[in-house]
Amino acid sequence: MSHFIHRVEAVKRLSPSIFELLLDREEMSFEVGNCVALFDATRRESRPYSLAGGINEPVLRVLFRALPEGVVTSHLKQLKQGDELQVSAPFGWFRPGQDDSNSPCIFIATSTGISPFLSYVRSFPDRPPAHILYGVRYLAEAVGLPVLKAACPVTLAISREAVPGYHHGRVTDLLDRLPIRKRTQIYLCGLDAMIDDASSWLEAHGVPFTHLHREVFFYANARPHE
């Protein structure tokens, strides 16, 4: 696997802490669910990020949450149009909606963990998931909501503010409302605590563990997509 140089098209601030990085495609092909490692060449550090764009879009899209202590994101958020960025070849092991394409699928995400699911609905508009359950801290952090809602029913859980029309709480509060059928494949992406809690609940309620597909990066010092 090689590393490549991509040019920055834009860095968009989507909420106070969530950004979308757009890179020129440079003929890179990828699969829905793939990640790329983005490098801060000066600090010789890299972090993996799930791709959020469609497989046929002319740009690469990456969502990231910028935190003050973010090792690579502090570099990413100050990039300008035309800057160069070192990017790994795409890689990954998470394939939303593709483990059993004849079965219905449900996506569950928190925060920027929505990235692979945005990639899915942008890539396969004719094969929408049965439902998306999406957890954010604030409504402003619900990035891509119009894209998701255009594809399928979306339930939003907002943990840190009450907003009329949306559930005030965590995604795990809403698992019993999901349209789970016998063959439903469930894909989870986001914070490890949510994924663990949701996986435990789903298994306890009869979902076979082979129907659960998880995407989470573990870090000693940093979380994914930060």
Binding site: A37, P48, F91, F218
Partner: peptide, 14 residues
């Protein structure tokens, strides 16, 4: 998928 600081192979994402 992990980034263990002690990895004897220096393995990490990407």
């Amino acid at each position: 998928n992990l980034r263990c600081p002690f990895c004897l192979e220096g393995s990490k994402p990407g």
